[in-house]
Amino acid sequence: MPSETVQNENNNWKEYLDAVVREVKFRPDRADIRREYEEHLSDAFDALREDGLSEDDASAAAVSNMGDPVEAGRALNRSHNPMLGWIETILRWILIFVLCSSFPIAYAVIGLGVVNTLGVIRGYSDVEGHGELIRTVVVGRSIDWDGRVLSIDEIRLYEDGALELRYRSRASLLNSGRLGSYDLPVRLSDENGTLRDVSNLSKTSGGLITYHQFLCKAFPPDSKAVQIEYGYAHLYKAHMIRFAVDLTATGKEAAE
């Protein structure tokens, strides 16, 4: 029952980690602390497995060797003083602000940093209800398009024949007159050029970056390629982005 074991291991660990970081009042430091403890648990788990313990026993022993999470958390809280932490954080931002105040690009980068720090960027969400993910075709193609940059990240193929397209859009840093996302139509057609129904699954805005997910519920199985079109075909033909992605090999992309 490997999946159950992993579940159990994660729950054990999650409980311990939650209990440790809960005691740390300075929230910005929680993620690093959690990561350090999690990595320790993982190293301890590996070593205990090498010593011959079962997965369950190793997982439990790794946690119990850690001792009392509340005691550790309170001790951590004493060296992660909220007041000093905030002062340090604010001073750092003021310094960055002063140093960069004459560079617009730096502003944009800092803006992204702020947005990221605030946890606004959430990225893609998992798609459920289409069976298991069979294959991910990494596209990794960025297109500068009318002051926005589109990054076509990947295409995912699911068990029930669904095809998902994931791409990000953001304002080009040098042409940052417009923010917000463009919701231009996306059209997908199969290798024979037949247009397929596509639904806009989700759009997660992360401030400057927007994450788009499109789903074609029934893409012909065993297709060798998918044709992607982006933009209003009838309005701006010259502005259309059109290219094909090879579905047979990961990462292979056919020339337009």
């Binding site: 350090e36 990595e39 550790a72 951590l76 060296s79």
Partner: peptide
Amino acid sequence: GYEIIRRIADRSDDAFQFKEGTLYPVLH
């Protein structure tokens, strides 16, 4: 951190067995 725990245990012939979670507050 984990390396430190292992080294202390090895060198002290396991004489020092503190709860591993208490190492990080000291380091921090």
